[in-house]
Structures are given as structure tokens and as C-alpha cells.
Amino acid sequence: MSNLVAHARRELRLVGEDRDVIDGLCRVVQAFADMGHSGASAHYAALYLDKLLRYQPLSELTDNPGEWIDRHADGTTPTPLWQSARNPEAFSTDGGKTYTLLSEQQAAGDMATTPIHHSKALPRMTEPSEESS
């Protein structure tokens, strides 16, 4: 057992975690330890894992239509609303050009004070003009 796994097992016991949970989490910690990270790479890997395990994106959301799910088209909402496929708490009313985050909404859904984020604009492919012969 690695020192990291021993540490995880001890800490989880101290907070009274269930044995099955301890065993499961220690298997994950062991897999992480088996990757052989140095101190610096372990730090970055842990940051990535934290975001990935919370369904958060690792880079900016973009206005790529493939990143946005049209919830109005699928009958989920009565008005136009898109949800990010990469960050489930991001919602847009303009197809992904701008969005708000559920975690930033103010009390009682006061949209006037909810921050609006701008998606990274992706270059658009333009159709080549047809030349007359």
C-alpha cells in the first residue's frame, strides 16, 4: 500500500466514513498513485480530476452549436433555451453565444444581477462563392 493510500484510508476512517466507501476511494487513490506523478504533475492531475469529477470543462465554453443542447426543441422548456453539453450548469438563450451559470444566479432567480458570460467565438466556415463560367 502506498503512503498516499495509507493517508487516504486513515483520513477517511477519522471522519467516520463507511468501509465500502473507504475501499472504493482507496482504489481510486491507488490508481492515481500508480501513475507515478511527481509533486508538480500530481498537482495538475488532481486539478483536472477535481473538475472532471464535477462535470466541469477544462477550457472555455465555445459558441459551437455542437456544444449546446436545444432544450426547447426537445420539449423540455416552453421558450428557447440551450444547455451546455460540456457544463450542465451553463444555460443560454441565444444558442450559446452568451450564457449564465446556475451557481451564480441570485436569490429568487433575479436575472438582472446574474453574471452573463461570453462563449469563445469559433471561426465560421464560409461557403466558397460560386464563380460563373
Rank of each mutant, 00 (worst) to 15 (best):
M1N: 08
N3D: 14
N3C: 05
L4Q: 04
L4S: 02
L4Y: 02
V5N: 01
A8F: 08
A8D: 12
R13I: 07
V15H: 01
V15K: 04
V15P: 00
D18H: 07
V21R: 13
L25S: 07
V28C: 09
V29C: 10
D34E: 12
M35I: 02
M35C: 14
M35R: 11
G36Y: 03
S38E: 03
A40T: 13
A45F: 03
Y48D: 15
L49M: 10
D50G: 05
K51R: 13
L52F: 14
P57S: 15
L58V: 13
S59N: 07
L61G: 09
D63H: 04
P65N: 07
G66H: 05
R71K: 13
A73G: 09
D74P: 04
T77G: 02
P80K: 12
L81E: 08
A85M: 01
R86C: 10
P88M: 01
D94F: 03
G95C: 08
G96I: 02
K97S: 15
K97W: 11
T98I: 11
L101K: 04
S103P: 06
Q106D: 07
A107H: 06
A107S: 12
A108D: 07
A108C: 01
D110T: 04
M111D: 00
A112I: 03
T113K: 11
T113W: 05
T114I: 08
P115V: 09
P115L: 14
P115C: 06
H117W: 07
H118M: 04
S129E: 09
E130S: 04
E130G: 12
E131K: 14
S132E: 13
S132K: 11
S133G: 04
